[in-house]
Amino acid sequence: MAIRMTKPWVSLTAENVKALPGQLGVFQLANAAGEVVFIGFGGGRALFGIRSELDKAVADPPAGATQFRVEINQQYTTRYQELLMLHVHDHGAVPAGNLGKPLPTLGRLSPL
């Protein structure tokens, strides 16, 4: 499995989100320039998994998000942490939209 998400971005609209399966997984949100501004997950408490979480993002997009991509993943909690750690490795901090929100304790990764 590639450690970074590489799927193409999809426009963050109610219609596109409605087409998603109600699965567990992780997602990234990006601004118009394709910069990741939020990393999140749709977990076991979300009514329709990633779809429910992205519905919230459509209603109130964090940090100017206009696009999204998802990865269906049962290991969403550890994958979520991995994506946050990779972002910190690549950019020195968590995405703007994650700042000020509860975060898990993050470790340090130095991928090759």
């Binding site: 909690t77 991995e82 991928p111």
Partner: peptide
């Protein structure tokens, strides 16, 4: 170096 995360059945 911590090169990668290894996901397992223990998803916590």
């Amino acid at each position: 170096h911590v090169r990668r995360v290894i996901h397992t059945l223990r998803s916590s």
